[in-house]
Design a binder for these strands. Structure first.
Lengths: 252, 252
DNA sequence: CGGAACATTGAGAGGGATCAATGGACGTGG
DNA sequence: CCACGTCCATTGATCCCTCTCAATGTTCCG
């Protein structure tokens, strides 16, 4: 397994197939994601320090892991391009998708305080990420304070996000879950300049199902049903929302 | 509604029925929970500063809220005695129990970084809590550093806890959920000196169901089934675990 | 072109929800 | 101290949503 070998070589960050490391070709100040990403929280002056803490940019091939359960924490990761899923694995081997992550979002927080990752992040398509080294960020006193504040904020958001998923998993029916999923996805995409009504799913039906606590067939059936009701226009991975209001109704 | 009136008066912490405030009668150094509670993370020297930050102890009557969704964050709360549940409420009014909390556990972290609570904590029986004021804790530099470290740790644990619930809600069958619930509960109780095989449930079947994503009748039926199989001996709220191994098997 | 991975759809089964009735525990007030 | 009401738990009967199993279709890529 090329993947495994790759994974085990970290945290040295060797240049290897599917896991290219190179010096920063783009500073945060020029990055397309700067308005959504962590650096947006810093002022122009502090940005220099942030830029220095962002040591390298990496490209991750589709299907590869950014980090895995049990690995030592070495950095936070900001998604530059591409799409990730995070999964947790139960003691008996079943695993569950706990989130999907797009450009500008920060991965790896779960390892930040325990120095060890407790989930696995896998690229759903070829992706680029920035590695943010907390140690270096905290060299500057003012930046450190600002950084900590935003790590708190990110963790707080993560807890709230998970609570809303718990609510979804505990109380919603299949249609509601899928509708909530689509609404959330399209909202985040729209914040990044994408259409409010059209999206391309980067994940399989199985992955959506795992995230929503449903079987892949059920996810497929719900798509078909919402299609037949004129709420959606689904063509495999391409989804068009025809009736925004109705979709919001479903998600209640 | 006495409850509502009470709630609205906070955070002034008036003395009122069911919500008694009084000066610390017991220091952390002498508290029965000190080995499980947050203060256990500090050395003897720092403990003085912690004790000062624990401004008041309060008693909370059964059914009363410690804090509610949307309320400003004023302090962290350490459970001294009694039992709490935390609930989140969805936009359409449905709510879900997100956790049960016993002596020594810290409540209110969800409001720590956003300065506002995003869930509600309700006492399941008459309870006592300690209010920990972060502002005062952070007066001392060394204590502040130590405190921050442990807040990170607590939040990390909270994220992991929620992920395991997501796994439960997403993939487990009713019996597995109930078994996992009991195992977790008895483990935490045992860490506090209680029996490894006997426990008294402080919550209703409905609350267990909400936590596990099941209806109360289903919870009741699972208890009955495990009873008939000789795994448990259930007498309403009193549960005896007759076959520890089998229960662990169920929770897989 | 062929194979692998993924999606769709159908038929049938089953687990949990729902509806409903009963019973026990507890607290309050007569 | 008992009667009563309330809250909670148990159990049964039935329904239905989702899972499971299975076959077919589509897309993508070597």
């Amino acid at each position: 397994m090329d993947d495994l070998e790759l994974i085990e070589r970290r945290p040295q960050f060797d240049i290897a197939k599917g896991f290219q490391v190179h010096a920063s070709p783009v500073g945060c100040a020029n990055c397309m994601q700067r308005t959504h990403c962590l650096p947006s929280k810093f002022n122009a002056q502090e940005l220099g320090a942030v830029d220095e803490a962002v040591e390298v940019r990496k490209t991750i091939k589709r299907g590869m892991s950014l980090f895995r359960n049990g690995e030592p924490f070495v950095a936070l990761y900001a998604v530059r391009t591409g799409f990730f899923k995070t999964i947790v694995t139960s003691s008996d081997g079943r695993d569950q998708v706990t989130g999907f992550h797009m450009a500008g979002e920060i991965l790896g927080l779960d390892g930040f305080m325990s120095d060890q990752h407790h989930c696995e992040a896998i690229a759903l398509e070829d992706a680029e990420i920035c590695m943010i080294s907390p140690a270096q960020l905290e060299a500057d006193q003012a930046v450190a304070r600002q950084f900590q504040k935003h790590v708190y904020h990110l963790m707080s958001s993560e807890i709230m996000r998970e609570q809303s998923i718990m609510l979804l998993l505990g109380h919603m029916r299949a249609e509601e879950r899928v509708a909530a999923f689509l609404n959330n996805l399209v909202k985040r995409l729209h914040a990044r300049g994408y259409s409010r009504s059209e999206l391309v799913l980067r994940m399989t039906r199985d992955e959506i199902g795992s995230y929503l606590g449903l079987k892949l067939e059920t996810v497929s059936r719900v798509f078909s049903k919402l299609c037949s009701e004129g709420v959606l226009d689904v063509n495999v991975r391409k989804v068009r929302i025809l009736n925004q209001g109705a979709l919001l109704q479903y998600a209640s």
